[in-house]
């Protein structure tokens, strides 16, 4: 018994060694500095050092809840995340499957490259692009499109009703290429014999997708959703701050936790308070993902994150 355990260990030894470099990296990059999490609970004085600085309990967290908008901010963060996760999954899986339908290699490569294009540029640049279209005075839509139809100019940056759609669109626009590549590489990995079997059984295209492709993609989809869920309390700062140009009139639909923290600490620059925000976001994300992971695990342990 003992020997067989040792044998097993020896057999797998190469695998442990393979893991080691990254394991050490994570240790240095993440675990070693993790003691710094205490910063969130301290009033830092660098002359005393981080450890010896006095504890202040949860004081550094207070500002996160001090505003009467705390509810709106939390709601926005959660709402957009859930929406984005759901929408991205549906759209990008569909795109991946469609991409796989295209037989012409040149066309397929070209379309793929185009889809990836937005992923290559930063949100700051995207915010200029959006501005180029939506700016009230010089924007393309107001200046050319609406003019052509003899319609009134719209002050896009002053009307919050448009922004849930604009933000969702921009987000999808930027990320769908990336995500569909993830799903696409899973689709091309599917064993062709499965389709042949299904085709022999007289399955229609739709049936093939439902009964062959989707089940094969389940584990990738599950992981991508779980990874998304773990960031449920984070928001893309660039998307919610830069793209709407931090316009005050839009705050009800653009203010998320990251935007709030940025605005709140802009001139304060307190490292304890900013670590408190990060800690809060991580803890909530962690709790949610543990729950989600547990639910996945009950159905199929192989698809779970850990």
């Amino acid at each position: 018994m003992k020997k067989s355990k040792f044998e097993r260990f020896r057999r797998f030894l190469p695998l442990y060694i393979m893991f080691l470099p990254a394991g050490i990296y994570f240790f240095i990059n993440n675990y070693l500095p993790m003691g710094g999490l205490v910063i969130a609970f301290k009033k830092i004085n660098f002359n005393l050092g981080i450890w010896k600085s006095p504890w202040v309990g949860l004081k550094n967290f207070e500002y996160l809840f001090k505003t009467s908008d705390a509810w709106i901010i939390t709601r926005n963060t959660l709402f957009y995340n859930v929406l984005f996760i759901a929408l991205n999954t549906v759209v990008c899986v569909a795109l991946a499957i469609l991409l796989n339908e295209i037989r012409n290699k040149m066309a397929k490569n070209l379309l793929q490259s185009i889809l990836m294009l937005p992923y290559l540029i930063s949100m700051v640049i995207i915010s200029y692009l959006v501005y180029g279209f939506l700016s009230g005075e010089s924007g393309f839509i107001n200046n050319t499109v609406l003019k052509a139809f003899d319609m009134e100019k719209i002050s896009w940056y002053a009307q919050e009703k448009y922004w849930p759609f604009i933000l969702t669109f921009v987000q999808l626009w930027k990320n769908c290429g990336y995500l569909s590549i993830v799903y696409f590489s899973a689709v091309v990995g599917i064993d062709p014999t499965y389709y042949e079997a299904a085709a022999l059984d007289g399955a229609t295209k739709w049936q093939q997708i439902r009964h062959v492709v989707l089940p094969e993609l389940t584990s990738v989809i599950t992981i991508m959703v779980l990874l998304g869920v773990s960031k449920i309390f984070y928001s893309d700062f660039g998307l919610f701050y830069q793209v709407p140009m931090n316009a005050g009139a839009l705050y009800n639909v653009t203010n998320t936790i990251d935007v709030y923290v940025y605005n709140a600490l802009l001139s304060v620059g307190n490292i304890s308070m900013s670590s408190a925000a990060g800690f809060y976001q991580s803890v909530v994300g962690f709790a949610v993902v543990i729950l989600a992971n547990w639910m996945v695990k009950r159905r199929n342990p192989d698809n779970a994150l850990f």
Binding site: E62, N246, G248, A249, N263, V268, N270
Partner: peptide
């Protein structure tokens, strides 16, 4: 009062510009 400063900062960034420029 850094807690209050942070919260007030965020509130001001929402309202000041639109009010003080007359857009609302």
């Amino acid at each position: 009062v850094s807690t209050e400063v942070a919260a007030v900062n965020s509130t001001m960034s929402q309202y000041r510009m639109v009010l003080e420029n007359g857009t609302v």
